[in-house]
């Protein structure tokens, strides 16, 4: 698209272009920089107006405090137990919703029946509802199921509301999977599950990664369900971080807050850096259905 009409003008244009792009890089990186440098300096440097500067005294103490001794809510446990809660919550919820989504996607593309598009539409709409709409009945339901205030309850909630997106991913992926292969396998004598396990599943690697990353990011980052359905012992990381930051008692330890924020961000950030391509694909597939 760049016409090479006038090389001097265009090379000047390129410099401006890169400068603008660079400025935006600074804009996006600035909050991360602020979090990082301030998590490594003593509190006094921050309160003295040095938020933008590099630490003069490098210290790892805020990280240690955030991890194991900071006051979260009523107890001075640090964020560690809540980090573990999040992991215990995320792993089964992601696994379950991905597995169920894969099976749903398979049925909805390769074994369609009258009304299967409507069924899919109804499943999908479930991802977009404001979850405020389900908070009250879900709180009661978890109580009835004996899961109130437990990590297991959160696993269940995230599994339930994760089905829609998982199904979306696998459905769109399997829709592009040649139906002739399924027919060939039928003629060869393979049944419903055999076709899924032997023919489709071995080719589902990429979409499984996309789905797992999406679910992982979403569930790890969730706050609303965590805040609504957990008690002090089962809080996920995001809720604990918010409690740490909002606690009104004592001095505000900004450096500890920043360290905690980075801790809460690290797992998803790590996934993003390692598998960014799949992350972006998931984002796109979640918005532009096709």
């Amino acid at each position: 698209m760049v016409t090479a009409s006038n090389s001097r003008a265009s090379s000047f244009g390129r410099i401006v272009l890169y400068a603008v792009l660079g400025l935006f890089c600074i804009y996006y990186l600035l909050p991360l920089y602020v979090m990082l440098v301030n998590s490594l300096k003593p509190l006094s440097e921050i309160t003295a107006g040095g938020m933008m500067s590099l630490p003069r005294d490098w210290t790892f103490a805020p990280w240690l405090s955030a991890w194991s001794s900071a006051q979260v809510g009523v107890e001075a446990t640090g964020l560690r137990p809540y980090f573990l809660n999040s992991i215990v919550m995320v792993v089964p919820a992601v696994a379950l919703s991905t597995l169920v989504g894969a099976l749903n996607g398979y049925v909805l593309t390769k074994w369609t029946f009258r009304g299967s598009t409507i069924v899919f539409g109804l499943l999908l709409f479930g991802c977009f509802i404001p979850f405020q709409m389900v908070l009250i009945p879900m709180a009661r339901m978890l109580g009835l199921m004996g899961l109130a205030g437990s990590v297991a309850g959160l696993v269940f909630v995230h599994f339930v509301y994760g089905i829609g997106f998982s199904t979306l991913y696998f459905r769109n992926y399997y829709a592009a999977f040649p139906t002739e292969l399924v027919r060939a396998a039928q003629i060869d004598g393979a049944g419903f599950f055999r076709i899924f396990l032997r023919i489709l599943l071995p080719s589902s690697g990429p979409i499984a990664v996309v789905c797992i990353i999406w679910q992982f990011t979403n569930i790890w980052n969730d706050f609303l369900f965590g805040a609504s359905f957990s008690d002090f012992s089962s809080q996920p990381m995001t809720v604990a971080l918010n409690n740490l930051v909002q606690s009104s008692t004592g001095v505000k330890e900004y450096n500890v807050h920043f360290a905690g924020a980075i801790m809460a961000a690290l797992p998803t950030l790590f996934v993003y850096i390692v598998a960014g391509r799949y992350f972006v694909r998931g984002l796109m597939a979640g918005s532009v259905k096709g």
């Binding site: 040649p178 002739e180 292969l181 060939a184 039928q186 003629i187 393979a190 023919i199």
Partner: peptide, 20 residues
């Protein structure tokens, strides 16, 4: 009768070879 039980075989336009 199920396709598998008809004792037929089929060659598809896309060949439908199992990629894995």
């Amino acid at each position: 009768v199920r396709p598998a039980d008809r004792n037929i075989a089929m060659v598809f336009q896309s060949y439908a070879l199992y990629p894995n």
